[in-house]
Design a protein around this nucleic acid. Structure first.
Lengths: 209, 209
DNA sequence: CCAAAACCTGATGTTTTATTCATATATCTA
DNA sequence: TAGATATATGAATAAAACATCAGGTTTTGG
């Protein structure tokens, strides 16, 4: 049962002439830009239309409503990412697990890099722009604490501390967040926790020898 | 220079009587509930007021505008998380790095678990509710690909594949995302990539012996 | 070259939302 | 208990946004 967009979100019509293909692209691009500059709150039909250099009416020719726009953007992005991952997996099948894992990392990384803007635009906390300073201060505060902690670890060399601190915190915060976002059951989620610990241990044993 | 809220977002006044303390708590709780059920788009002053069982006017007595509400919610959450991390770091300072890392994982994990609702409410993609099916399908598709890949890895036992697939993908997706969200410079970000690879290798070497 | 189809426009109607304020009620203090 | 202070109400206001549609322009195919 492959997903088809809910009716209320389906594109109204697909462009046939090249003129309108340009228009639709411009609308997508404008959506990204507005999302980046103003956040979801500033994403209004007219702000997008203006930025895209078209009239509001034109937008409604292709998208039944505002949400459909963001939906389509997301769909494009996720489909592209999924295709890349599938290709990578097909290529890496049969290779040692560590090679496969690295291939996966490369793929994910490059998709994110390629359209970093889009990634940022699509995945921003609901809190949005106003809270950036808040989040930044929080990050700095926490970073100070963890760096201080690792600096005093008897088994770490001074010159490794910053690198290891950065790696560990990024991996830990990212993994914890992702683990909870996936909506896994209790069993899987707690299994994940001990695997994450195992991973950090293995990393430290190999990196801080 | 410790952060003070931008003026436009500062609470209007702090409750002194217990009656109003109850009110403010109810407003916060209502904000979370609405955010969960309706997403940011459904977070209107009246929906929050209704859910909290107070009038709109009351809300404006304590918050100068709608954004201030979400801001305050975020501030509460982040401050609490930061304090927990600081405590943990103080306790774990001087212990071996792997012990410190595990303590950090426990702390983060417990804060997320404790108020999972709040976490979900605050960190949802701009796409919000409509796109949940989209994201779910995407996840399933990618999971199928990676599991297939690891199933064919010559160095993995069949009974380990699912566990390892879950761990690796969660760690990789979470880390990549977090790496890009942090706004690091090019140097740090590419250093991170190779550290992530090293981590996966070390994990596989120890887990799939 | 012409009619049909595709595409574009933007002022307009309608609905929704944020925010205020005059008024009423509760709590505190002396 | 009375006056002062804190808190609560919700109809009214004004601004903003969505979405439409009647009428124009451009492109296509024969």
């Amino acid at each position: 049962m492959p997903t088809t967009s809910p009716n209320k979100l389906k594109p109204r019509k697909t462009p046939t002439q090249s003129r309108s293909r340009v228009t639709v692209d411009a609308i997508f691009e404008a959506t990204i830009q507005v999302l980046l500059k103003q956040g979801m709150a500033g994403l209004t039909t007219s702000s997008v239309a203006e930025r895209a250099g078209v009239s509001v009416g034109t937008m409604y020719q292709y998208f039944p409503n505002k949400q459909a726009l963001v939906y389509a953007l997301n769909e494009r992005f996720l489909t592209r990412l999924a295709e890349n991952v599938e290709d990578t997996c097909a290529l890496a099948a049969g290779r040692p697990a560590s090679v496969a894992a690295e291939a996966l990392i490369d793929t994910y990384w490059s998709v994110k890099t390629e359209r970093m803007e889009l990634t940022h635009a699509l995945y921003r906390s609901v809190a949005e722009l106003d809270n950036e300073a808040l989040v930044h201060d929080f990050a700095a505060r926490v970073d100070r604490a963890t760096r201080g902690m690792f600096r005093e670890s008897p088994d770490l060399h001074a010159e490794d501390v910053d690198r290891i601190n950065l790696s560990l915190t990024t991996v830990i915060y990212g993994t914890v967040r992702n683990a909870f976002e996936r909506g896994l059951d209790q069993e899987n989620i707690s299994a994940l926790k001990s695997e994450l610990k195992a991973m950090c241990r293995a990393y430290l044993a190999s990196a801080a020898k």
